[in-house]
Design a protein around this nucleic acid. Structure first.
Lengths: 347, 347
DNA sequence: AAAAAAAGTGAAACCGGTATCATGAAAAAC
DNA sequence: GTTTTTCATGATACCGGTTTCACTTTTTTT
């Protein structure tokens, strides 16, 4: 563990010369000296100390990837296949640019602010697989550039990356309508508190209204999450007299729970109950029947967020941007075509 | 962003006194002074700078959680529900002790060593959802305490946390035998290169030998991974004349792929093909029929690893420990009882 | 040939803490 | 009453880099 001084001493130059070599400051050091210093560094396996560097330069090269603790269970924060994949891509993209990822669960904005200060974090990325209460607070009080995934507030300057969620909700619903469904429900972890789910919901409503249809209060399932939530929905459906023939679910795992719950309660899927999910994550391929879902390009999403972050780190005036990414429908077998009572999606 | 000097100046004391207050060094500062300084720190929202601290103290309070890049695709590194959950628990446990998690994907030991040096990482945790080539190299060359999950080398001093994998393989196989199965296959991402899978395999073999049975070369599926791998196994099975009646698969997703692939090829599951998985991760509950699997306590696993790590950080002689955690069989519906041809596991 | 500019290098201060040791005052021991 | 010990606090060096600026030497300009 040699320091810059050891290298300088061995090369017979000052530490400044070594520093200039490290930073490829060609204008300030002769090629011959640079070459000699580089060899000595290689031989010693010299690596600069980030603590010393960031102490004076004020750049830590650390990016916080913030994962809100959900329902008091920090443990499940990365369980979500979508979140895991997104974090994986973020790490990859940031590392390319010599930035490093610190994953941090948190419950309050204060925690994050303290964290940011202690580590002098250059930027922060908020990954929101689910609803949380503190995003707004954090956006307003953040001391470093902050990019938020899957949430936006129109009245707040912020950097965000979302999907075209309205189109997503619309596309899912429209697809069901075109397959002949007229009684279509909607299930989500929280319909009214999340901007993106609200958008999906609005898309759902507008597709219905194009067919001069309305939703029904009983067909709206709010506060249902993951597979358990989906099974609860299935239970409710099984008890219902005027039951919808299809459900739009805002996450795949929820959709899978509905399918599975319906099956276990003796319904045929998709014949008796069709479902469209969101995300195209791993469960979509695992469930029988395979899930028709609104897919997103997670890698592109990560790249967009990183781009925004770096833009903001370079330009202090860039603090308001809202990226909206495309979605696409992935057609599989979880939707029944009730027009000709054909077999699944491809009839 | 006030510094320790600002606080000291305002309190009319030296920086050392402030430092002692921060570290609750009761013996070195009077209660009255401590109180006064604390108030000023609170008012300024003072937070110590980790870079400055670690520069001199040599403790960064950073723990690297290393995730090997798998098949050149960094992206999928956290996709695995098991890995995600483990990382989540690790973050939670480390944060409690004021240590912070840097997630790092990597391909070569050199990368890690460089990383460890630049950040002066206090410790490293290697999470190995799958086989990799460089673990051995890394263990030998690590400059900081390193805890390895799910891998061990008998000839190398190292800190590791594994399951009782031999018992796991044995239990899964024994269970199938007791349900009347006599033709039992084994599927794994790599049977011969991973210590833990080798253990599971040995457990499988020893259970068979208790019944005076042997495996058959055709019933061993090596190099099959995830759902796709499982579906490939299913394909192979469907082509087979003398086909096993049950398979032990070393990961849930693989097991699920087999079940799903068999279904799609017209077999009845579990009637025509029973499967036992490993991990009890999310897919186990999602598949139809729900998967019988060898479960592990991931939280306990994380806690054990963290414990080893801290022990090693405090005691430089503690560099060789091998924790073996219990497993348990979770009985669900993916195994057919062929003795009385009853319905599923509970007949 | 003298003056100006550029290139190459180094000295010293500095970032924000911690470690070490010194200092002065009060308390305890003799 | 003097000496010793304890207690509370401070002065200073230091960690390993970067920034700033000064200093030579060489090259270019006039």
């Amino acid at each position: 563990m040699s320091t810059i001084k050891d290298i300088a001493a061995e090369a017979g130059v000052s530490v400044m010369t070594v520093s200039n070599v490290i930073h490829n400051n060609y204008a300030r050091v002769s090629p011959a000296t640079a070459q000699r210093v580089r060899e000595i560094m290689a031989r010693h396996q010299y690596v600069p100390n980030m603590a010393a560097r960031s102490l004076i330069s004020k750049f830590s090269h650390i990016i916080a990837v913030l994962l809100p603790v959900w329902h008091g269970s920090a443990a499940s924060m990365l369980l979500d296949p979508y979140t895991g994949q997104l974090v994986g891509y973020l790490e990859e993209l940031l590392r390319e640019k010599q930035y490093y990822v610190m994953v941090c669960s948190f419950q309050q904005a204060d925690e994050v602010l303290t964290l940011q200060q202690t580590w002098q974090m250059d930027g922060m990325i908020l990954v929101l697989p689910h609803e949380d209460a503190i995003t707004r607070d954090l956006i307003q009080r953040a001391q470093a550039p902050l990019v938020v995934f899957d949430r936006y507030y129109e009245d707040l300057p912020m950097l965000s990356v979302c999907l075209n969620d309205r189109l997503g909700g619309y596309t899912a619903t429209r697809y069901l309508l075109e397959k002949g469904h007229r009684k279509i429900g909607f299930a989500a972890p929280t319909i009214y508190e999340s901007s993106v789910i609200q958008d999906r919901f609005q898309g759902y409503l507008s597709a219905l209204s194009e067919y001069h249809l309305q939703t029904k209060k009983d067909w709206l399932f709010d506060g249902v999450v993951h597979q358990e939530g989906g099974e609860a929905v299935a239970h409710a459906l099984s008890q219902m007299s005027d039951r919808p023939t299809a459900i739009v679910a805002t996450e795949d795992l929820l959709a899978c729970g509905i399918l599975k719950g319906c099956q276990e309660r003796g319904m045929q899927v998709p014949e008796d109950m069709s479902v469209v999910g969101f995300d195209d994550s791993m469960p979509a391929q695992l469930i029988t029947p395979r899930l028709t879902t609104i897919a997103q390009d997670i890698r592109q999403k990560a790249a967009t967020g990183v781009q925004q972050l770096f833009h903001a780190m370079e330009d202090a005036t860039y603090r308001n941007a809202h990226a909206v990414l495309d979605i696409r429908l992935v057609e599989r077998q979880s939707v029944w075509d009730i027009r000709h009572a054909g077999a699944g999606a491809d009839s």
